[in-house]
Structure formats: C-alpha cells, structure tokens
Amino acid sequence: MTIEQISVFVENAPGRLLEIMETLGNAGIDLRALSIGDTARFGVLRLIVKDPQKAVTVLRAADYVISVTPVLAVSLEDTPGSLVKILRLLSDAAITVEYLYAFAARKKNSAYVVFRVEDNALASAVLESGGVKVAGAAEIYDALS
C-alpha cells in the first residue's frame, strides 16, 4: 500500500517557497505533511496533501515542475526507539532508504513516517512480515484531518 507524494522543484531564490505555498493556499489545498531536500543550488519540496490530483492540477497550471511518487507510510508509537525497529528490518533486507520524514498524527497518540525506497512492494512485504503495519491513503488522510 502506498500513498502519493507530490514533489516540487524549488529554485534557490528568495520567496520561491512562499510563492508555492500561496499557490496551494489560494486553491484551498490542505497540507498534511511536508519536507524539503536541498542542495546549495536548489531544493525539492515534498508534500502529502489530502487531494493530490487537485494539487497536481493547480501546480502544473502555475508552471511548476512537479512529480508524483508513490511512497510508504508507516504508523509508529510515539515513543523513543520505535523507529529503530523499522530501520533494522529494512537494513537487514538490504533496502536503502533514499529519504524519510516523520509527522505526528492529530487524532491518535501516534506518529507516521514516510519512506522513499526504490522498491515499494519489497519494502512493504519486509515490513509487514516483521509485524509493522503499512498505512494506506485513507488511513493517512483520516489520521491527519
């Protein structure tokens, strides 16, 4: 089970992030989670939103370069060390994590971690067989609203 992440190219210039946020805000897009990967020269903004299709349409119309990537979301207990178990499972299966970011859920006393790996199906199977539940889109959007 995967959820859709929208990535947006961000030029390294003052006000670029603000412009993107305004574009989304004006279109009534609700952000669920956000992270930025960056170099000295540019950044990649990664978003989880409730209505990915609408966000894609709005961003494309405003001439942003974007991509939609399926990523894995895993729910964790909001306690110290809970991420270790998951990383251990992936590491033992020789799965490289390209990047990850975490966010706290509003309704439950839990957190979610979003993983970007090369092979989602393989990573899902490894996690499930290790007793880690991979969250679906409905759960994520519900947990976050």
Partner: peptide
C-alpha cells in the same frame, strides 16, 4: 529545468 529532468530525489537532479 524540464519536467523530464526532474525527480523527487535530490541526488538524481
């Protein structure tokens, strides 16, 4: 940048 050149992964760009 063209959409074809873009990736969600900083490393690839």
């Amino acid at each position: 940048l063209t959409p074809e050149m873009f990736s969600d992964t900083v490393r690839k760009i």
